[in-house]
Simulated scan of single mutants.
Amino acid sequence: MIKATSCGGVVIFRGKILLLYKNYKNRYDGWVLPKGTVEAGEEYKETALREVHEETGVKASAIKYVGKSQYTFNTAHDVVVKQVHWYLMMADSYYSKPQKEEYFEDSGYYKYHEAYHLLRFPNERQILEDAYQQYIELKKAGLWGNKKYF
C-alpha cells in the first residue's frame, strides 16, 4: 500500500464554483475540483494554490481550510490511499484555461446546484457542500471579498 497526499481548492467567483472536465484516454472522464500532489518542502496551502493555478490558470486566494477527503485506487503494482486537503478559495475573475497536459478538456464556473450534480465523486460533492456553506456564512458576515479577512 502506498500513501499519497494532495491538496486542492473549491474556487469561487461571484458565487460560482470552478470545475474541470478530465478525459483520460477515454477510460476516465468526469467533472472534478482542481487538486494535485504535494511537492517536497511545500505547505499544504501552497500546494493547493499552485495546483489550482497549474490546472486552471486561475490566480486564487486561499480563504480558509475546509477539511480533508480520502479515497483509494489501484495501480498496476499497488493500492494507493490518497488523502486530499481542501481550501476554500476566491478567484479574481471568471478566467480559466484547462491544463491539456493533465488531460483536462474543459473548465468553467457553475452555480452551486449545477456544480454539485456535475461532480463525479461523492467525496468531492461533500467537500463542495462544506466549502459552500462556509462561503455563505462569510458572505452573510460581510467578510467574503474583504482583504482584511485573509
Rank of each mutant, 00 (worst) to 15 (best):
A4V: 13
S6R: 08
G8N: 12
G9P: 00
V10D: 04
I12R: 01
F13L: 07
F13Q: 06
R14D: 14
G15W: 03
I17Y: 04
L20S: 02
L20W: 00
L20V: 13
K22V: 00
K25E: 05
R27K: 11
Y28R: 12
W31V: 06
V32A: 06
V32S: 01
P34Y: 06
P34V: 14
P34D: 14
P34C: 10
K35C: 10
G36T: 10
T37R: 08
V38F: 01
E39K: 09
A40P: 10
E46K: 11
A48N: 05
A48L: 03
L49W: 03
L49P: 02
R50Y: 00
E51F: 00
E51R: 04
V52E: 02
H53A: 12
H53R: 09
H53N: 12
E54K: 06
E54H: 08
E54Q: 11
E55T: 12
T56R: 02
V58C: 01
A60I: 03
S61D: 00
S61H: 01
I63C: 02
I63N: 01
K64H: 03
K64Q: 12
K64A: 10
K64D: 11
Y65R: 05
V66A: 05
V66N: 05
K68G: 15
S69I: 14
Q70L: 08
T72L: 00
T72I: 07
T72C: 04
F73L: 15
T75K: 05
A76Y: 06
A76M: 06
V80H: 04
V81L: 04
K82V: 13
W86Y: 13
Y87L: 01
M89Y: 03
M89W: 00
M90I: 05
A91R: 03
A91P: 04
Y94K: 10
Q99I: 03
Q99S: 10
K100A: 11
K100R: 06
K100W: 13
E101M: 07
E102P: 02
E102A: 12
E102Q: 07
Y103H: 13
Y103L: 10
Y103K: 15
F104C: 07
E105D: 06
E105N: 02
D106T: 08
S107C: 09
G108C: 04
Y109N: 11
Y109S: 14
Y110R: 13
Y110N: 12
K111E: 15
K111W: 02
H113F: 05
H113T: 15
E114A: 09
Y116G: 15
Y116R: 15
H117Y: 04
H117G: 15
H117I: 14
L118I: 11
L119P: 01
L119H: 06
R120H: 08
R120K: 15
N123I: 11
E124H: 08
R125V: 13
R125P: 03
L128P: 14
L128C: 11
E129I: 13
D130K: 08
A131C: 04
A131M: 07
Y132N: 09
Q133T: 14
Q133K: 15
Q134D: 11
Q134N: 05
I136H: 00
E137M: 09
E137F: 09
E137A: 12
E137I: 09
L138S: 09
L138Y: 15
G142C: 04
G142A: 09
L143I: 08
G145Q: 06
G145C: 02
G145E: 00
K147P: 01
Y149C: 01
Y149A: 02
Y149H: 01
